[in-house]
Nucleic acid binder design. Structure first.
Lengths: 234, 234
DNA sequence: TGTATTTTTCTTGTCGACAAGGCTCTCACG
DNA sequence: CGTGAGAGCCTTGTCGACAAGAAAAATACA
């Protein structure tokens, strides 16, 4: 368990240690390399990264603020569990934010936004083509984050970002379910969304965003009910 | 400027220092006792609270996570400015969350929720009666937070909570504008919202939440344009 | 007198060490 | 054999001190 990777004792710049630890732990949690519920030891991390416990601690405080870890006072800190019980609430919020951000993008986007979005859409298509699940997750999130950014509402964008991060562990399971038949359909739906945004067709953007989101939700629900035989409400 | 309040050197319990500093600084920022843009000195805070810089630092990291302070690397950390430029984006999100949370409360509330909501509504009415602006802010936020909680969607509730916190500095100006004619109308609107929630009338709850929010937004906008036209810097 | 450079100072970032709280294992006792 | 108190261990929380960056001040020079 005590894999000693990343243990380079090179000179770091002054404020970079915290960010490095934060980013790395975040990725390891979201990629399920650190399984939910497993404990996180500060001194072990300090030894692994060759630094004191202080910057490790700051990174952990940040992660706790993101809800990715939970810290039991005076006891231990462990990776947050995936909240399967309130999944319907998550999906409800996700669908709404897909709708709202796409709708606002149709209203407020610029040509630069469209360039960026198209580039990310190409990356997503390439990841689908290459059957690269992790790449699909990243590029899909990037695509929709760019759309949210084009909507020019920082509050929606950050909330949406948080939802995408929260759901990344779910989405990872989700995309793994496509090992056989890959969702080339989503590439087409993305293209339709781009077209609606470019045409500034707010109603169509709203509708397409809703359809796109609901299809993903339905697919994940199908996956979940297959894995655990409990009834999930929507 | 260096008021030395709260400097009690009593024995504290082990993990309580961070929370105390966090809560107190948060309140001071949101109540505009710490004006936006003003610097925050760690050693000064450490001396004021009679503790080391370490717990102070953790509280500051948390506050930075909430977006209430901004930390310039290797330089200083200062109270975040109020984002007047993107106010319309804030209001857009606020109205939507008023609608969504009220709607969901109509769907999913229990009788216990209603009891809690009514109690908070009474407190709000009392604060309005007493012309207590700070009390009105707190009890109004509590009222709508309780409604959000009754909606049984943690993601909406936490986002809404964040919006209310973010806007508390604005709302403080807003409620101060009611020094003459107090918004007893809002008490009635709250009562209507409660009735719609209790009757599980989703459409009415949605509509009332929207009206309620838009009226507040309109009032704040009127206030802002009044400040803007008189060239009052904040 | 104006500008470039150096020095000083001030704040933050990091470290190693120590103390406190909780868990576990052991052991006495019913 | 079961139960509860106590000792030891293990992790976190806090501290004081030092180092690094950057702004401000002081100095040298044209």
């Amino acid at each position: 368990m005590t894999t000693n990777d990343g243990g380079q004792i090179t000179e770091r710049k002054r404020g970079s240690g915290v960010k490095m630890v934060y980013d790395l732990l975040r990725d390891e949690i979201l990629d399920l390399k650190l399984v939910p519920g497993s404990p996180i030891d500060e001194v072990q991390l300090a030894a692994r990264f060759g630094m004191s416990r202080t910057p490790i601690r700051e990174a952990l405080v940040r992660l706790a603020g993101d809800g990715l870890i939970e810290t039991l006072p005076n006891r231990s800190t462990l990776v947050s569990n995936i909240d399967f019980l309130n999944m319907h609430a998550y999906f409800d919020a996700l669908v709404l934010m897909y709708r709202v951000t796409t709708r606002l993008a149709a209203l407020h986007h610029t040509t630069d936004d469209l360039h960026l979005i198209r580039g990310l859409q190409d990356e997503f298509a390439a990841a689908v083509q290459a059957q690269d699940a992790l790449g699909m997750i990243a590029t899909n999130a990037g695509f929709h984050s760019a759309i949210a950014a084009a909507g020019r509402n920082h509050y929606y964008a950050s909330f949406f970002e948080r939802l995408l991060v929260d759901g990344r562990r779910i989405l990872r399971l989700y995309y793994q379910s496509y090992e056989d038949q890959l969702p080339s359909r989503f590439v087409e739906e993305h293209a339709e969304i781009i077209a609606a945004v470019e045409a500034r067709d707010v109603a169509a953007a709203d509708r397409l965003g809703k359809i796109h989101a609901e299809q993903i939700v339905e697919q994940i629900n199908r996956l979940l009910t297959r894995y655990q035989s409990s009834d999930i409400q929507l």
